[in-house]
């Protein structure tokens, strides 16, 4: 997999020069809308203070900075066809993500990137495509799904298998409905913990893989979620016959610099911020089951 676009180079001359020469320098973005998706997850819509678009590939991430608090790697969850609007879906799990997730409209945040490799969903044209998402892992897959539905006729059967903790933790409910109803995507949702009002599936998302209808010999599969879940999902997909080089996972470790220098995100020979986050299973399989890597 090749590394995709680096930091955006459009914009005013002074900003452009800084972004081009120093990927460590954040651009200023203004929060235009904050939406609470679930109990602990929020989606921010941001616009560049200088008005220049931030072009990105589905699957890439930015380093998002709450000034005075800290910086965190956050996958882009918006539409790659709309580079004027940057969307990030953030789970509030600590001080930095709390400051980011709850930033009210008008807040200025710092953005570095986009960084890393993308899903390259267009590789699935002419065949079937399977998305497997767990928890907030649906957010990094959303841009790939939006890219796919924009050219839906180019793809065969498309299946989205999504697992969440509880029905209340299901992300992008309106999108799920639209993708199924308007774009013919087979959407299967399962939860770990179903309350009595829930009428859908209960169980692990990997259980859905064995019964999903797709042609494994001609399928591009994309998996995103907690690493344990991805490992089991990848095994289930490989057992169905999906070729390891056609099976892609998003590995999100402790990215810091975003440009392959600091080594915080190193996974043996890989620097996940530049070699990843999206990598094919043939490269990841030998590394994923190793402890302390």
């Amino acid at each position: 997999m090749t590394s995709l676009a680096g930091p955006d180079t459009a914009g005013s001359p002074s900003t452009t020069r800084a972004v081009r020469t120093d990927p460590m320098l954040p651009r200023e973005f203004v929060v235009t809308r904050t939406r609470q998706d679930t109990r602990d997850t929020y989606t921010l819509e941001l616009k560049a203070a200088d008005g220049a678009p931030l072009r990105f590939a589905a699957g890439q991430f930015t380093m998002l900075q709450a000034f005075g608090v800290g910086e965190a790697p956050i996958s882009i969850s918006g539409d790659p066809a709309c580079p004027d609007l940057l969307e990030h879906t953030i789970r509030n799990v600590g001080s930095v993500t709390s400051a980011l997730a709850t930033a009210p409209p008008g807040t200025v945040l710092g953005v570095r990137g986009p960084f890393g490799t993308g899903w390259e969903v267009q590789d699935g044209k002419g065949g079937d495509v399977v998305f497997v998402a767990g928890g907030i892992g649906l957010a990094p897959l959303r841009p790939a799904i939006l890219e796919l539905v924009a050219q839906r006729a180019e793809y065969g059967r498309v299946v989205l298998l999504y697992g969440a903790r509880t029905p209340e933790d299901i992300l992008f409910g309106d999108d799920l409905h639209d993708w199924a109803r308007k774009h013919g995507i087979v959407v299967e949702v399962t939860v770990d913990n179903g309350q009595h009002a829930w009428r859908g599936r209960v169980g692990l998302v990997t259980q859905l893989v064995s019964r999903a209808g797709f042609d494994p010999s001609n399928t591009l599969a994309m998996v995103c979620g907690p690493e344990v879940m991805m490992r089991f999902a990848a095994t289930a997909l490989a057992d169905r016959g999906v070729r390891p080089e056609r099976l892609r996972l998003s590995m999100e470790r402790n990215m810091k610099c975003g440009v392959g220098l600091c080594g915080h995100c190193q996974l043996r020979e890989l620097f996940l911020c530049v070699d990843g986050p999206v990598l094919s299973y043939d490269r990841l399989a030998p590394l994923m089951a190793r402890t302390e890597l």
């Binding site: 928890g135 907030i136 892992g137 903790r165 770990d192 169980g203 990997t206 259980q207 690493e227 344990v228």
Partner: peptide
């Protein structure tokens, strides 16, 4: 196996 993985509460844990 499914129940064991669900017990890990992977979606709600720090692994995210």
């Amino acid at each position: 196996q499914s129940a064991r993985i669900r017990l890990m509460d992977v979606y709600g844990g720090n692994d995210d």
